[in-house]
């Protein structure tokens, strides 16, 4: 029996985990521990619903509702000097919670402080683009769309950025396969002839650079011509035709050999 792999997360897994092992957590401290962050959080809370806020590894993380993203970013940009949005991306939690986590990494250049504004999106839910506030979102949101399929509404050019335009699927989803489909060479055969003809028809050739030495239909044999569609699996017959010397150069032999010159 084939090993069961969950379809909602096909990524690499640890091959062994101790039964009693519990992952510790990075400590979170309250936002009130840092004067700057505390004041900032107060300001955000005045107008925006904050679901959770804490400091983790020197940066404040603020969880908000996805509808408030523009308002929150405008507030921290205009009132709190967070002039740069250095990164926008997402984390795939579809398997666990059916949600994406989208984060906006903000930088205050005057005080050298960073915060991360985090929001959760349901699958298929779009988020409002923040390009009117930060042009850096232009590329970042396109990448987020390309990698996760999260659409940013009112983005000036919501298209794929890294993958080709006609690509199927979004590579950073946990459901995205890590390898090609090994059964793919049978799909066309099954569709056209039916599964029972597999042995007769054989697997479809999906390698465009494949060369079959005995295939006299699709491949020519320069210098050793045989009739079209002849069976040469037993070795080809001698042909009385003489060929041009230029076609039959022996590349293994060097043209300048000392014994020949003598």
């Amino acid at each position: 029996m084939r090993k069961y792999t969950p379809k909602d997360n096909v990524q690499g897994k640890a091959y062994h985990t101790d039964r009693f092992w519990v992952a510790p957590s990075v400590p979170r401290t309250d936002a009130s521990e840092d004067a700057h962050f505390a004041a900032l959080l107060e300001k955000i809370k005045e107008s925006i619903a904050v679901k959770d806020a804490y400091i983790q590894i020197g940066q404040m993380v603020v969880h908000i509702n996805p509808e408030d993203n523009i308002a929150a970013l405008r507030l921290v940009k205009e009132a709190c000097d967070y002039a740069m949005c250095t990164e926008i991306s997402a984390v795939d939690y579809l398997a666990q919670e059916g949600e994406f986590e989208v984060f906006y990494q903000m930088l205050n250049l005057k005080k050298a402080k960073r915060i991360r504004i985090v929001t959760r999106l349901k699958e298929g839910q779009a988020i409002e683009s923040v390009v009117p506030l930060f042009n850096s979102a232009n590329f970042a949101e396109r990448e987020m769309y390309d990698m996760f399929g999260i659409v940013a509404n009112n983005h000036p050019f919501m298209k794929r950025i890294l993958m080709p335009d006609d690509w199927e699927g979004h590579p950073l989803l946990k459901t995205y396969p890590l390898q090609g489909d090994e059964a793919a060479s049978w799909y066309e055969v099954d569709k056209i002839f039916g599964k029972e003809y597999r042995e007769i028809i054989g697997a479809e050739n999906r390698d465009p650079s494949k060369i079959d030495r005995y295939d006299t239909k699709r491949f020519s044999r320069v210098g050793y011509e045989v009739p079209f569609d002849a069976d040469i699996s037993e070795g080809e017959k001698e042909t009385p035709i003489e060929y041009s010397e230029t076609l039959l150069v022996n590349y293994n032999k060097s043209s300048k050999q000392l014994d020949e010159r003598r």
Binding site: A14, Y15, H16, T17, A23, P24, S25, V26, R28, Q56, I57, Q59, V61, T86, E87, Q105, R114, R116
Partner: peptide, 15 residues
């Protein structure tokens, strides 16, 4: 070497 290190749960952005 065989399993790899397991950092604690959490997130970090380090510039």
């Amino acid at each position: 070497v065989t399993q790899g290190m397991r950092p604690p749960k959490g997130e970090v952005y380090a510039p």
